[in-house]
Design a protein around this nucleic acid. Structure first.
Length: 269
DNA sequence: CCCCAGTCCTGCGGGC
DNA sequence: TGCCCGCAGGACTGGG
């Protein structure tokens, strides 16, 4: 999302913000919609950054717009098929060859959009663990030593390590050859090395392939095009398939912390 | 502290 | 066919 929106939004002035043009239950936005609009108008987007699973628009005045898409949120710069799920729309000062607006589009409406001060932004960063792409083996060892929860559940805790989602936790552990049910505390140093390596491999490849678009059409890029990482999934949503790693195990689905986990009981120990 | 269930929403596909 | 149910790349809260 950041790579898609960055060339369109960087250096652009915000003329106006439209809030929930779709007539659905409003998504969470803060501060109030009127304050949000008033404080954004006339500001320039100086930079677009990623903060774990969030998209951050850095504003010229020193504040930040933090977009948290959660399950079904998207940022779109092309005209979407419908305006039905358009939740927030940013209108930009026209520039040749660039989109005149972009929007936060969210089918389920679980996503949030917030305007934060520098202090609030710092507080948010403090609540998050280190970014998953920056965590090496010794950091993983320290992180996983701090909890007794199953390793897959721990990997989803954003205060321990930030940026890993449910789908990717299963994929990472499969590539690392570690059971999702193993207690975090029992993960060895060599296993931490495999987790560090697999995390970077999976996340970087998923970014390159522009994410996973599942059956009901979840993630899409800013042009509303499907991603293709779903074709690279080795376990997620592949219950009953033969394990592509060991060619012997059958991929199993279990529930951990109320969320689906997929793994190969044969080669993940 | 840890852990779980419930909650916020909409929409899709499977089973009956 | 129609309906109901489970389930969905997430995160927070409250209670045991």
């Amino acid at each position: 999302m950041v790579r898609g929106i960055r060339p369109e939004a960087t250096g652009r002035e915000i003329l106006d913000v439209e809030y929930c043009p779709c007539e659905r239950k409003p998504i969470e936005i803060s501060p109030s919609t009127t304050t949000f609009r008033r404080k954004l108008r006339g500001q320039t987007i100086s930079e677009v950054r990623r903060l774990a699973k969030r998209v951050v628009l850095c504003l010229s005045g020193g504040s930040f717009v933090v977009i948290e898409p959660r399950m079904s949120g998207l940022i779109l710069v092309a005209d979407p098929p419908t305006t039905e799920h358009r939740r927030v729309c940013w209108h930009l000062k026209p520039r040749r060859g660039k989109a005149s607006s972009f929007e936060f589009w969210d089918r389920r409406g679980l996503g949030t959009v917030r305007l934060l001060t520098e202090v609030e932004m710092a507080e948010l960063q403090e609540r998050l663990g280190p970014d998953a792409l920056e965590v090496d083996a010794s950091m993983w060892k320290a992180i996983l030593s701090s909890t007794r929860r199953p390793v897959k559940v721990a990997m989803l805790e954003q205060k321990l390590v930030a940026g890993i989602g449910n789908l990717y936790a299963s994929e990472i552990l499969h590539r690392a050859g570690i059971s999702p049910q193993r207690s975090s505390q029992k993960i060895t140093r060599p296993q931490c090395e495999r987790i560090a390596e697999a995390t970077i491999q999976v996340l970087e490849t998923a970014i390159k392939y522009e994410g996973s678009t599942l059956g009901d059409g979840t993630y899409r890029n800013v042009l509303n095009q499907d991603g293709s990482y779903q074709n690279e999934h080795r376990v997620y949503d592949r219950e009953g398939d033969t394990c592509p790693q060991c060619s012997q195990g059958v991929i199993k689905r279990i529930v951990q912390a109320q969320r689906s986990t997929f793994y190969c009981p044969k080669c993940q120990k």
